[in-house]
Amino acid sequence: MARLVPIGVAAQELGVHPMTLRRWETEGRIDPPLRTQGGRRRYDLAKLRAIAPHKAPSTRSTIAYARVSASGQKDDLVRQVALLESYCAANGWAYEVISDVGSGLNYHKRGLKTLVSRICSGEVGRLVLSHKDRLLRFGSELVFSLCEHFGVEVIIINASEDSTFEEDLANDVIEIVTVFSARLYGSRSDENKQVMERLQEVAKELSP
Rank of each mutant, 00 (worst) to 15 (best):
G38P: 00
G39I: 08
L45K: 01
K47Q: 15
K47R: 14
L48P: 11
R49T: 05
R49L: 08
A50D: 06
I51V: 14
I51T: 11
A52S: 12
A52G: 00
A52N: 11
H54M: 03
H54Y: 03
H54Q: 12
H54K: 03
A56I: 04
A56R: 03
A56T: 12
S58A: 14
S58G: 06
R60L: 13
R60F: 09
S61G: 04
S61A: 14
I63N: 00
A64G: 14
A64V: 13
Y65E: 02
R67L: 11
S69F: 03
A70S: 09
S71A: 05
S71R: 12
K74G: 01
D76H: 09
D76G: 09
L77T: 07
L77N: 07
L77K: 02
R79N: 15
R79W: 09
R79L: 13
R79Y: 11
V81P: 01
L83R: 08
E85F: 05
S86D: 15
S86M: 03
S86E: 15
S86W: 06
S86C: 09
Y87S: 01
Y87G: 03
C88H: 03
A89G: 04
A89F: 07
A89S: 15
A89M: 12
A90K: 08
G92I: 02
G92P: 05
W93N: 02
A94E: 11
A94M: 00
Y95G: 11
E96H: 11
V97S: 07
I98Q: 10
D100N: 12
V101E: 11
G102E: 06
S103N: 08
S103Y: 03
G104Q: 09
N106R: 10
N106W: 04
Y107S: 09
Y107W: 12
H108D: 13
K109I: 07
K109A: 11
R110F: 10
G111K: 09
G111N: 12
K113F: 01
T114W: 00
L115T: 03
L115S: 03
C120I: 01
C120H: 06
C120F: 01
S121I: 05
